[in-house]
């Protein structure tokens, strides 16, 4: 307990000295690195970024400081990073989210998510899990489809946001299976799962990280995952393809990006440091607790991955004829 006080006192001291100390000229990184999360605090991207923030100092001489810049579904904060100096001191945490790989197919963007940003590394993939209350009449997506066809009733579905990864996956599911799925958008994952927990809707979709506590509490059963393979965070849940429905999406991908023009050696430094962070046992343990699988990917590979994921979403949106505005 005494240690805690000492640590806090030291921390306060360092915090006060920080702006003065960082003046010294040195090789990169010579000052603290800012990681921008373009979403509000407490969400799954924020949790991931803050876990990295916590482990980062073990492998780098300068700290990583996470700031939240929410707004415009992620566009506002990301645009800030795009427009910042490409010196490696401003990074974007959450690269691969809905506004990077889904939104460009739906509306005009103020920047190009692929050309204006350099993919540094992928950290995790947040799959779309389909869930229902423990006392609902079906135990799998297959049974749900059969039930909906027999009863001829629409399935009301709680989703976090309109035209997000979860909304698209479930709309695609309804179309492919030939049943009516009414997606009800809430303002965020927590609100959607709360409404589902109260039994106000029949099914819901969410990322494992958002629903873990409810699954632990036995409030939900997970009836399917919309990924090409099973999700390491939910190894016992079959994918939609396994259940005979040809729908697979990448959900929401979470990586790190830097503004275009950032020097190669800086990107390389960041990539290798992030790799070390993702291999750290403390990091892996924290991620497991939060229900976020660690799925690292290097800069080059991740660039290709983003391109492919964007194209896949564009195809789903075209096939389903989804439009906004």
């Amino acid at each position: 307990m005494k240690r805690t006080v000492t640590v806090l006192a030291a921390l306060l001291f360092v915090a006060l000295m920080l702006p003065v100390a960082s003046m010294a000229e040195d090789a990169y990184p010579a000052k603290p690195i800012t990681g921008v999360v373009p979403f509000g605090p407490g969400g799954s991207t924020d949790l991931l970024a803050r876990t990295v923030e916590k482990i980062w100092p073990k492998y780098s001489k300068q700290p990583l400081v996470i700031v939240n810049k929410p707004g415009g579904g992620g566009v506002v904060g990301t645009e800030g990073v795009v427009r910042s100096k490409p010196d490696g001191y401003t990074l974007y945490f959450g690269y691969g989210s809905g506004h990077d790989i889904v939104m460009p197919s739906l509306q005009k963007m103020p920047y190009d998510p692929q050309k204006d940003l350099i993919a540094v590394a992928r950290l995790s993939v947040h799959s779309v899990a389909i869930l229902t209350g423990t006392n609902s009449p079906f135990n799998s997506v297959k049974e749900m489809v059969a039930w909906a066809k027999k009863e001829n009733k629409p399935i009301t579905t709680a989703v976090a946001v309109k035209a997000g990864a979860v909304d698209l996956a479930l709309t695609a599911l309804g179309k492919k299976a030939g049943i009516q799925i009414v997606t009800v958008p809430f303002s965020g994952g927590a609100e959607a799962t709360t409404a589902l927990a109260g039994g106000h809707l029949m099914i819901g979709g969410g990322h494992p990280a958002e629903i873990l506590s409810h699954i632990k509490a036995g409030r939900f059963k997970v009836i399917g995952v919309a990924l090409p393979q099973r999700d390491p965070a939910l190894p016992n849940v079959p994918t939609l393809r396994e259940q005979g429905i040809d729908v697979a999406t990448w959900g929401s991908v979470k990586g790190v990006a830097a503004p275009a023009g950032t020097p190669k050696d800086v990107v390389h430094y960041l990539e290798s440091t992030l790799k070390k962070v993702t291999e750290d046992p403390d990091f892996r343990k924290a991620m497991e607790n939060m229900g976020q699988p660690v799925m690292f990917m290097g800069s080059e590979e991740y660039t290709k991955f983003i391109k492919q994921a964007t194209a896949d979403y564009a195809k789903i949106i075209k096939d389903l004829n989804i439009k906004i505005n």
């Binding site: 240690r3 805690t4 640590v7 806090l8 803050r50 916590k54 996470i66």
Partner: peptide
């Protein structure tokens, strides 16, 4: 929040 990481 970052300061709370230091609190064990």
């Amino acid at each position: 929040l970052p300061a709370t990481y230091a609190i064990s």
